[in-house]
Design a protein around this nucleic acid. Sequence first.
DNA 1: AGTTAATAGTACCAACTTGGTACTGATTAC
DNA 2: GTAATCAGTACCAAGTTGGTACTATTAACT
Lengths: 153, 153
Amino acid sequence: MIRMSKQTDYGILLLTEFAADPGGLTLSARELSERAALPLPMVSKILKVLTREGLLLSHRGARGGYRLARRPNQITVADVIGALDGPFAMTECVDAPGDCRQESTCPVRTNWHLINHTVYKALDNITLWDMTRPLSPPLIPLTGRSANPLKVA
Amino acid sequence: MIRMSKQTDYGILLLTEFAADPGGLTLSARELSERAALPLPMVSKILKVLTREGLLLSHRGARGGYRLARRPNQITVADVIGALDGPFAMTECVDAPGDCRQESTCPVRTNWHLINHTVYKALDNITLWDMTRPLSPPLIPLTGRSANPLKVA
DNA sequence: AGTTAATAGTACCAACTTGGTACTGATTAC
DNA sequence: GTAATCAGTACCAAGTTGGTACTATTAACT
């Protein structure tokens, strides 16, 4: 299925803890693991990646911890996915051009690039700040053309 | 990463072969595997699933084969994903309510449902018929709010 | 009726990915 | 100097996925 990894899911949850506090607070891995009710080693692992990828700033030593590198409204869901799940690519041909034998003749390749871009932009339009409160439904206006029954879970 | 399975990728490619022909043609698994340059066992496996899920009609015996169960403009990319990849769910909490310990307190859960729905609708807006020709860029109008640099692959 | 061409169904396996843990080293506050 | 904290890496078990093989069933054609 098309699914984010749990790491990314957790990552967004953790970052949202920071985003919910307007003061740009610093939290240690231990504090975060308690707040989010997630195992400490996992939280620690994720925070390290988010720091390496530039979404968090870290401070080492006693009374150290992490804080957001940018303001909550300037970090998007797409940023977090990019940091933890790697480049956003719904099909192989999008992030590994050349690996697919069909590439030269594939009739749908260019469409996949466009679709991928569209979905990416949708997720890049949602910030951590947005995630701290309920989103209003008209998130993205759609051209409701399809008459198919809704089969979303 | 957020990626469709190869099976779904192949599935869309195979169905597009049917969709490109206006006459509602019938193709055998062997013919399709040659057209799409994919291994026959894999093609056969995918076609069986698509038939079971109601996207294809099959005809057994000599000179049998498969054909689309609906017209190309009435089968969407989301349909194919649903058939081959299972229910469309970007996070666990969307398709397996109750399995997540955070569920009762999770601050972002309702947002995930909405985001999931939005992405689903975007993919449900693209038909097989669309995939047979280049899509025009304003696929889905976005409210270009985010100022983040584009990091899509 | 028999032969051939085709799908249906299931079982299987190797390889890759993922969630999760453990351990050692470096840094900083007190 | 000691305790708290992050950094980095290595590791493993379990699940998922891509791909193959085999048998049974169906239908056209002669």
